[in-house]
Each structure stands twice: as structure tokens, then as C-alpha cells.
Nucleic acid binder design. Structure first.
Lengths: 206, 206
DNA sequence: TAATGGCTGCACCTTTGGTACAGTCATTCC
DNA sequence: GGAATGACTGTACCAAAGGTGCAGCCATTA
């Protein structure tokens, strides 16, 4: 029988994922070999395939972690903004500023690029990976969309605004900003894009 | 002696590049095998390695084509805008609209994601590839930066604007928008992001 | 006619991502 | 205390992908 407190549980799987994530963010998933992972964790190949049926299952597990982390990042920021500010517009402005600050502090580690990495090789992976990728991006879209709707209600804009596009803007800037930041080796690019979008939000609803 | 009109010149190399580009955009560079390319072009492995020392040299050649295409896209649009409009702000607004239209028409084929593909695996490639990637992105930055400076001069904004970030916005949105468009299977996402940025530009300088 | 460009053909090598399966050792259940 | 189970190890073997090295061949060109 298997229950939560089973002492036989080891942290090997977790350690594989940890190392795989770091390596994937640094070198891409394709550049991360199983041999490298088992050497790093100190197990054998059989040990690896005991935990993951194949490399695709490892990718799925990484995406799973990413989705969890993703949701936490979004909700943490909006929860904090809601705690501090009642007004939807000013809450959004505060949230965007906090988000930009968060990105400044952990520029390399953001797993957003996991989505991009998998996106550009998705033919190689399972449909599961693609679905998870969509799911993660929909999390952003719906969270922002709902809040922009609240803003529009209280601050009707002069010109019509493409709310769907606006809701997608942040994740678009994150994905693009991570690429630019990486290419230019400049972690300030992404937070500055977010702050620029914040200016746009302020201008749009005032 | 080798000169331009050498009749022995074949188009094999060009055909390899053509096929490799299409395959890379569809499946990623890692997912594009040499065997697949030589089968498609109808040559042998030796034939491939006659043209390219290794797969990295193929990647470099693809990036080369991308840079050329990249510059043409930028200059075509701004040239046309300059032709029609003298005012820097309205020229920019027109250019952005034309760009969004262009993206709507050729959503799949835009090679921007070549940069992203290579970016997320750049440790595997030569320093050349990374330099070419930087070069391509600087093309965007400098082109836009110059034009935003002209706009600021004629239309001094009320609040201070981060011109560097603004100059990077379009390529950031392109890279991010290609990812979202790919994940959601929705080619309208990118052009709409560009149109949203256009709104921001209009609002910022009026 | 000789040289050269643009290949072909063949042999062989390494790395990576597996598959298959038997054995081991510590813990836990009864 | 013995059986079952979880978490592995070890060994052997396989195919695909990315090469390397080299000899040869054929059409064009100097």
C-alpha cells in the first residue's frame, strides 16, 4: 500500500527535475542530455527511466512545474495588489509595477522560456505538451482579461480598446522580452517593457 | 579561376537552405535532420557536407538569409511610409499599420522565430550565431530609435518616455507574438499586438 | 588535355535516446 | 519473521543522428 508518509519515497525524481530545469533554461531542452542528468544526480540510466518513461515525459513534468509556478506568480501579484488597492485601474498599475520588480530580481530563472523552448520544438513532443502550453498562456489571458473588464467598467475609454489583445500583451512581452534579454545579455529589457505597457494602460484609461 | 558566371555553379546549396528554412520554421532546427534534407533535395550526405562543414554552418547560413530578409522588411516599410508621409509621428503610425498588415498576410513564414529558435539553443552553436542574432535585433532597435527621436522632437511628450524600451517594443512583440500565435494557433495575435502598440505610440505623443 | 567543381559511394565512428530484463537492497505490511 | 514492494543497479543491446575520411566520377572550363 502506498501512502503519503511512505518512507521509501526518495527525492531523486525531484532532483532530476531540478537539474533538468536549470539545464534546460541554460542550454535548451534539446541540449540537455539524459547522460548529463544522471551524472549530475548520481544515478544510472535505468534509474532515470524508472522515473520517466522517456524524455518527453520529463518535458511534461517540467511543464507541470512551470504551470504551478506560473499560476503562483500571477496570483501572488494580483492578491497583493487587491490587498493594497481597491480601484481596478490602480490595482493593475500596482500589479504591473510589482511584476516588473519581480522580473528585475529574478531575470534568468523565469521559466517562461520553457514554454518558448517547447513551442519551437513542439512537433517533437506530445500533444500533452502543446495543451499544457496553451493552458499556461490561457491562465495569463483570463486573469488579465477579467481585470481589464473591471477597469473598462469604471473607466470607460475614449477610443475602443482591443481587450483580448491587451490581456495577451503581458505574456507576449514576457516571452519576447526574455528572448531579447537573452540575446542582448541585458536583464533590464523585460522589466522595462512591462513598465512601458503600464504607461500604456494608464494612458488608455484616463 | 572562379568567377561570377561560372557555369558549374548549381543551385543545390540554395535548395538545401530553402528546405532547411521551411523545416526549421515548422519543426525547429533540432528537429530538422540532415538525412531529411538530403532526401528532400535529392543528394547524398557527402553532397551536404561538401556545401556545409557541419550543421552549425547551416544554421549560420540560415541566419544570414534571415538578416537580409529582416533588413528588407524594415526598410521596405519605412521607405514606403516616408514616401507617403512627412510627419514622423504619422509616418510611424502608418508604418506600424503596414507592418501589422504584412504580418497578417504572411503569418507562418516570418523568420523571426529563427532568432528565437537559435536563441534558446545558442550554447550549442557558435559565437557567430549569437553575434548575428544580436546584429538582427540591433537593426530593429536603431531603426525605431532614430524615428522615435524625430517624433519626440516634434511632439514633446507630457511624461518622460523610455525611448530605448520603445524602440525595442516592436521586435519584443514580434518574438513574443510569434510564440503566442504558434501556441494558440491564432495568426491574428501578433498583428493585433502591433496595432495595440500603435495605439500606445499615438497616445504617448498627443 | 588537364584541372577543377560538384558531387557519389562506401566504410566507419560517437553520442544520444532508448529497450529489455534480471538482480539487489532497504523498508514496510501482515 | 517472511513476503511484498519501491527504488533503484548492471549488463547488453539497438537505431537514429551527426559526423569523418577518402577514393572515384563526370561535366565544364582554362
Amino acid at each position: 500500500m502506498l501512502h503519503a508518509a511512505d518512507r521509501r519515497r526518495t527525492d531523486t525524481r525531484e532532483r532530476i527535475l531540478e537539474l533538468a530545469e536549470a539545464s534546460t533554461l541554460a542550454k535548451g531542452f534539446g541540449g540537455t542530455s539524459i547522460d548529463e542528468l544522471i551524472a549530475g544526480v548520481g544515478i544510472t540510466k535505468s534509474g532515470f527511466f524508472y522515473h520517466f518513461r522517456d524524455k518527453t515525459e520529463l518535458a511534461e513534468a517540467l511543464m507541470d512545474r512551470y504551470l504551478v509556478h506560473n499560476r503562483k506568480v500571477i496570483s501572488d501579484i494580483f492578491d497583493r495588489a487587491d490587498e493594497l488597492i481597491e480601484d481596478p485601474l490602480h490595482g493593475m498599475l500596482a500589479a504591473l509595477k510589482m511584476f516588473a520588480e519581480t522580473l528585475s530580481n529574478i531575470p534568468e530563472a523565469h521559466p517562461g522560456c520553457l514554454a518558448a523552448t517547447f513551442c519551437y520544438q513542439d512537433q517533437l513532443f506530445s500533444a500533452r505538451i502543446r495543451e499544457m502550453n496553451i493552458e499556461g498562456m490561457l491562465d495569463w489571458r483570463t486573469s488579465f482579461r477579467r481585470r481589464f473588464e473591471a477597469i473598462v467598467e469604471r473607466y470607460p475609454p475614449k477610443r475602443e480598446v482591443d481587450l483580448d489583445a491587451m490581456a495577451d500583451s503581458v505574456i507576449t512581452l514576457v516571452e519576447g522580452g526574455l528572448i531579447l534579454g537573452r540575446v542582448h545579455q541585458d536583464p533590464s529589457i523585460l522589466p522595462r517593457q512591462i513598465m512601458l505597457f503600464r504607461d500604456f494602460v494608464r494612458l488608455s484609461f484616463s
